[in-house]
Amino acid sequence: RKWEEIAERLREEFNINPEEAREAVEKAGGNEEEARRIVKKRL
């Protein structure tokens, strides 16, 4: 699934746990840019 690939990239890029990465992607509706913004806000 594409969402899992996005979550994996976010996890590696921001050094967050898989659960946090998945939550961000879900919140963003699968949009990678939006997920990235969500993760950055949390850091």
Rank of each mutant, 00 (worst) to 15 (best):
N17E: 15
L10K: 00
R9A: 09
E12Q: 12
E4Q: 13
R1Y: 08
N17Y: 09
E20A: 09
N31P: 00
A7H: 03
R9C: 05
R22E: 09
E32M: 12
A24I: 14
E13T: 03
R36S: 04
E33Y: 08
V39L: 10
E8N: 13
E34M: 10
E32Y: 14
A24T: 06
R37N: 14
A35V: 02
E19P: 04
G29F: 15
E5V: 05
R22N: 09
R37L: 11
L10T: 01
L43Y: 07
E12W: 08
A24S: 05
I6V: 09
E20M: 15
E26Y: 07
L43I: 13
E4D: 14
A28L: 01
R36F: 02
V25I: 11
I6P: 01
F14K: 02
K2G: 15
N15E: 11
E12S: 09
I38Q: 08
K41A: 14
I16P: 02
R37Q: 13
F14D: 02
G29K: 15
E23L: 12
E4F: 06
E8Q: 15
I16T: 05
E4G: 08
A21P: 00
E19W: 09
F14L: 08
E19Q: 13
F14A: 03
A7P: 01
E4W: 08
L10G: 00
N17F: 09
E12Y: 10
N17K: 10
N15F: 09
V25T: 06
E20L: 15
E12F: 09
R37E: 14
I38N: 07
E23G: 08
A7S: 08
V25Y: 03
E33M: 11
E19A: 11
R1E: 15
E4M: 06
F14H: 05
A28H: 01
A35D: 00
E8V: 11
A24R: 01
N15H: 13
N31T: 04
K27S: 11
R22F: 12
A28R: 01
I16Y: 02
E34Q: 10
A21L: 04
R22A: 11
A21Y: 02
R1C: 08
R11T: 12
E19S: 10
A24L: 07
R9P: 01
E32N: 04
I6K: 03
K27P: 00
I38H: 06
A24F: 05
V25C: 03
N31I: 11
G30W: 04
N15G: 14
E34T: 09
E23S: 13
I16R: 01
K27L: 13
